[in-house]
Design a protein around this nucleic acid. Structure first.
Lengths: 299, 299
DNA sequence: ATCTTTATTGTCATAAAGACAATAATAAGT
DNA sequence: ACTTATTATTGTCTTTATGACAATAAAGAT
């Protein structure tokens, strides 16, 4: 039995819920699929699909098997793709998904140069703070603030992602410069909205984590706007150092040194990670992009 | 091309470093492996193996590919094994749908023991008197009163479902004990509401079926409540023997012996059936439950 | 109850893989 | 340097597996 074919047939039938539709995809008569799937079920000694004339549904085992088979077929396809493109030069679509802030400040400015280096690569960049599934999908490279989701994905730490409190000199002149973390509660706060809600300000005071968030003046998922608000003296903002470097240099914002430290997360080992499937490093376009980004960004 | 076969051949050749040895493992001539591996290389457009007469070595891509392929083949084998294991021992979700009365009185008390017997089965029990279509719903087992519905479903008669008239001694003391069925019309009736409406009382009098229903005092689809009403002397109730056994034993209700017999249906071969779908490959969890229930419940 | 859609089965045609012998290539032994 | 032995590959035929197409059966929808 051609197991590979049987698995593709089976998973397509499961996906479409119909032998006829799936047969259409492969350009063969439904009877072929029926026979191959029956062979497969026979070899496993289990019923994978509940058939009726109107719909085809997965059984319980079928559902489990389907999930795994889909994953296996995907991996195989990726491995094949990697080998096929092995000796070709970097080309084709490269889908990069990045956090918005990092994308705007760091990634996009670099990509011009990358495009010139590899003119045959068509860039497709998505900026979003939602964490997209790297695994089964169409994303070649992802840049995220968290850790690797599974062992098939490789994570390279690009840079630290420590959030620091900043404010405009004018704001500090008016409201006073806070020294102890607890004083923040009397200030005005500008907040990032992550997919999990606005990020609180935390500080480790008297052997305990305390929320020292100031009253909200503005909340947004747009870092630029929050930065501008802060520069206008509207409040204090917790922001990654790399995202506000230009404001710090120009003097529009200054870093607040607080005692004890204020963070937005109990573990302060936040970092920006470059994620990709390790089996895809063989694909020239992926390798080119990974190498390029690591060379340019990594501290 | 049977890609999995090609992959198995390829990886065995890579592992043994020889077409001849690998061929021995599969019990086919080396020429077959040579052809399949060549096909594979052809389809990938890359050379995976460096051949010489003395040894076969992996190329650089070949090495990468080999590692990934090995992983994929392992996963597939595991998935297949998982299915076989599922077919070998009772496990997974078991969805049982039962009539309310039977479920409460008989089924649920038994299921604790069943759970202990088969800890890997997760029970999902729905109690309802609607007759859910066994085929289209995701019900593994159904318990219903009535007759065996159709071909594709296997039905096992668990117990009789004959309805008998019962009343409280206090009620009989007050209202008199009916002897002939026709007298019931002068009594008070408690009625089940089935999905088809309240069940009438029927009796075969003078070679004719007659409705001998008493005026309705209460109608409900809740057997417990009707039983309690009857025990309080509110009226006469037609109820399955198994559902009122406890009241009969405690003497709170007594069975009425009427001439001629009173039934709720013209055919008196009502029974409680255990229904499950006939499958090509027997699912252990279903078999376990069927066997268990038959052993415990069947008279 | 009838119709329509859909999966399955039967039968034949076609394509793919295996078997076996022959050949070519290369490293080892002399 | 020459021979030998081992091993992969190629040619040809046979066997097996898959596809094609028509016919049948079953289940939901009208």
């Amino acid at each position: 039995m051609d197991q590979f074919r049987a698995l593709r047939y089976f998973s397509k039938v499961a996906e479409t819920g119909s032998f006829t539709k799936a047969a259409g995809v492969f350009g063969v008569p439904p009877s072929s699929l029926s026979r191959r799937v029956a062979d497969l079920e026979n070899s496993l000694g289990a019923t994978l699909l509940k058939r009726s004339t109107r719909e085809v549904k997965l059984t319980e085992v079928g559902q489990r098997y389907y999930t795994q088979v889909l994953d296996i077929l995907n991996q195989l396809e990726q491995s094949n793709e990697a080998v096929r493109s092995y000796q070709a030069k970097p080309m084709g679509h490269l889908h990069i998904s990045s956090m918005v802030g990092f994308g705007e400040r760091i990634l996009l400015p670099l990509l011009d140069e990358f495009s010139q280096l590899y003119p045959e690569i068509v860039l497709d960049v998505s900026l979003s703070d939602e964490l997209s599934a790297l695994s089964r999908d169409d994303v070649d490279l992802a840049i995220r603030g968290g850790y690797a989701p599974n062992e098939r994905v490789l994570a390279i730490k690009l840079m630290g992602n420590q959030f620091i409190p900043v404010a405009a000199p004018s704001y500090l002149a008016e409201m006073g410069k806070p020294v102890h973390a607890i004083e923040l509660k009397q200030h005005k706060g500008l907040y990032f909205r992550t997919p999990n809600g606005p990020t609180p300000w935390l500080s480790y005071i008297n052997a305990q984590w305390q929320d020292v968030s100031a009253p909200q003046v503005a909340v947004s998922n747009n870092g630029n706007w929050l930065g501008d608000m802060a520069a206008k003296g509207k409040g204090i903002l917790m922001v990654p150092r790399w995202a506000t470097a230009h404001h710090l240099e120009s003097g529009k914002l200054v870093e607040l040194v607080l005692e004890p430290q204020v963070q937005i997360n109990q573990n302060n080992d936040m970092a920006v990670y470059l994620l990709y499937q390790k089996q895809r490093y063989l694909v020239p376009k992926v390798k080119a992009a990974v190498d390029f980004l690591v060379a340019r960004v990594k501290c």
